[in-house]
Design a protein around this nucleic acid. Structure first.
Length: 188
DNA sequence: GCAAAGATCGGCT
DNA sequence: GCCGATCTTTGCA
């Protein structure tokens, strides 16, 4: 009989943000829209640590765009950037703190396009702002822990990408990726 | 009301 | 490594 994967519920995301970032590596991301299914194994994420984090959208306080960040963990935060791309985030930690993780890269399932960067993840999984604020849940978008995803989790930690404006936070080690798996920027 | 910047990507030097 | 595409969001007047 087939080995079952375990669908993650909001309690998984309502924990320390960095711990969630590490634990979600190797888990599968699933997207269903118009009867089509897309997805892949999560291989790269970044953590954003709320109001104190100069690189976070929450740094300047609550706005119309980032209001999902200030809500419950286990919800989906999607925003539009650079006039062309969407970025997928999961709200983490506690409702008291606007924390999130950015999904940067997947090892795509067959039939799912390239996912080697946050803009491409959303393009290949047909993710846009219509998902913003919704709970992470089947069928439209969910995450599952795969058998053995906790084994051989050999990961690297680096500063985040594309946040040179963030002062001292530009050097914070908050990007996590699985060694030997697809990443953005060649894993560097 | 307007201007500037941005959690990116692909192409080119 | 640098640059342009493309347009929403935000900050400031």
């Amino acid at each position: 009989m087939p080995i079952k994967s375990k669908i993650l519920d909001p309690s998984f995301f309502a924990r320390d943000t960095i711990q969630v970032a590490i634990d979600i590596l190797g888990c599968s991301l699933h997207r269903e829209i118009n009867g089509n299914k897309y997805g892949g194994i999560i291989t790269e994420v970044e953590a954003y640590l709320g109001r104190v984090d100069r690189a976070s959208h929450a740094f300047r306080g609550l706005t119309k765009r980032n209001k999902t960040l200030f809500g419950e963990p286990g919800h989906i935060y999607v925003y539009f950037i650079y006039g062309m791309y969407y970025c997928l985030n999961f709200v983490t930690g506690s409702k008291l703190f606007p924390n999130a993780i950015l999904i940067r890269c997947l090892d795509p399932f067959e039939g799912t396009g390239k996912c080697s960067g946050p803009g491409l993840v959303c393009k290949s999984l047909h993710i846009d702002t219509s998902l913003d604020g919704r709970i992470i849940s089947p069928p439209y978008l969910y995450v599952a822990k795969e058998p053995n995803s906790h084994i051989m989790k050999n990961y690297a930690v680096t500063p985040r990408i594309g946040i040179d404006y963030a002062g001292p936070w530009r050097n914070a080690m908050l990007r996590f990726y699985l060694k030997g798996a697809p990443t953005s920027r060649g894993g560097k």
